[in-house]
Design a protein around this nucleic acid. Sequence first.
DNA 1: TCACAAAACAGAATATTTTTCGATTATTCA
DNA 2: TGAATAATCGAAAAATATTCTGTTTTGTGA
Lengths: 154, 154
Amino acid sequence: MKIKIDDIDKKILLLLQHDSTLTYKEIAKKINLSLSPVHDRIKRLEQEGVVERYVGILNKKMLGVGLTVFSQVTLIRQTREVSQIFDIAIKQLPEVVECNFVSGSFDYLLKIIVADMEAYHNFHQMKLSTIEGVSLINSFFVMSEVKSTTEIML
Amino acid sequence: MKIKIDDIDKKILLLLQHDSTLTYKEIAKKINLSLSPVHDRIKRLEQEGVVERYVGILNKKMLGVGLTVFSQVTLIRQTREVSQIFDIAIKQLPEVVECNFVSGSFDYLLKIIVADMEAYHNFHQMKLSTIEGVSLINSFFVMSEVKSTTEIML
DNA sequence: TCACAAAACAGAATATTTTTCGATTATTCA
DNA sequence: TGAATAATCGAAAAATATTCTGTTTTGTGA
């Protein structure tokens, strides 16, 4: 599952996860290499799946999706069957941008992005709470986003 | 702050936030338009800041950063001064990929990505708990990532 | 409804970037 | 050391992005 990455790969990955519009030429210059190895390495990293995908990051406020909510969800039972139903349902909800199964006093922590409180209310009542097996939902509303990045430390 | 977006813009944004390697030609074909308007619209959306940036998404497991932790942080006081110190400190920590100021029984919810438990222990003791004003830290460990996307609903 | 202005659009040119390819250099391992 | 493999380089070819010119559509006010 884990793959060996050398220092040059690491430099390339750090650049790409920060700004994927960099051209091969620009990357080559930044890491003091010629075009070919940069090209070959990036293609290899994409091929191997180290780079999963390239995406555009949008400005939520400008698009009028202004409310982020974290919801702690507890299921009636922690059986594989109940979890599986929940997992499948969550993946289909576009409002849910992150869903993690966690240790501790609840089962799942969800990150939900919606337009406003009305939209969240509707989501909560019509979609989240109607998923089979959901027992408890405890929500926290984001008042201010301090930091948000897709860049992981290498 | 909010900007008006028509249906064509919306289609383009949905495509770009899913896969930014699509060429203008491919996008043009998908939304039944010629190259020029697609080009002009994308450049406008970038210019306006609706598209904030383009990034590569990396595979955490392959890179050996296998532990995700959510930490609820409470400060000694909720004054502007204490918050400001915390905000600045958090922005400088590469382990913290998300930080939100939330309503409820604690002040901040952090998402932290590290290599393993040892790395988290070190981060907790050396970095997070040493930030001035931090009073309580309550951590939840991710056992399984069910969903993770950067795509927001439009 | 008409005239006008502004915006959106199409197609062709030019410039830039990506991709491919053969040759050279470095590295690894017996 | 020597052979085999991998990595790198430079240049040409292909694909894409960008720019430009002209046309069509849309919206507005008289």
